[in-house]
């Protein structure tokens, strides 16, 4: 079996790639994708801890399932809001969405 810490390194890397993307990407959809990376890192973590450390119960797996469902809802709302921005501004670049900055 693959050692557990390989998975943990993967999920930690995914998490920080997601956080970096959240800060660095300029397109709102890319920012949203970065957030999804963070959520995926969480789900990997839960499954791995459940499978390796506590195989007698299923709490971690259930948390992952709930997380996936809620992440889908989150994406739907976020994309609706981004589309609304596009209708107003014809643009979803974060550098142009600055009417609240000043």
């Amino acid at each position: 079996m693959i050692p557990m810490h390989y998975y943990l390194i993967l999920s930690a890397a995914l998490f920080f790639v997601g956080v970096y993307g959240f800060i660095a990407r300029k397109n709102l959809l890319a920012v949203l994708i970065s957030v999804e990376l963070v959520l995926n890192a969480v789900e990997i973590n839960f499954c791995v801890f459940n499978r390796y450390l506590y195989p007698q119960q299923m709490e971690g797996m259930f948390f992952s399932l709930f997380g996936i469902a809620i992440a889908a809802a989150e994406t739907a709302v976020a994309i609706a809001i981004i589309m609304n921005i596009y209708r107003n501004l014809q643009n979803i670049d974060v550098r142009h969405i600055d009417s609240l900055k000043h």
């Binding site: 957030v35 959520l39 973590n45 839960f46 709302v77 976020a78 609304n84």
Partner: peptide, 23 residues
């Protein structure tokens, strides 16, 4: 519209961070 986008993205990231801690 801008406030909505900022709120949803920040709240998604913050709940991601929170869940990462929970994991």
């Amino acid at each position: 519209a801008e406030a909505g986008a900022k709120y949803i993205l920040f709240s998604a990231l913050s709940s991601g961070v929170m869940m990462f801690g929970l994991s």
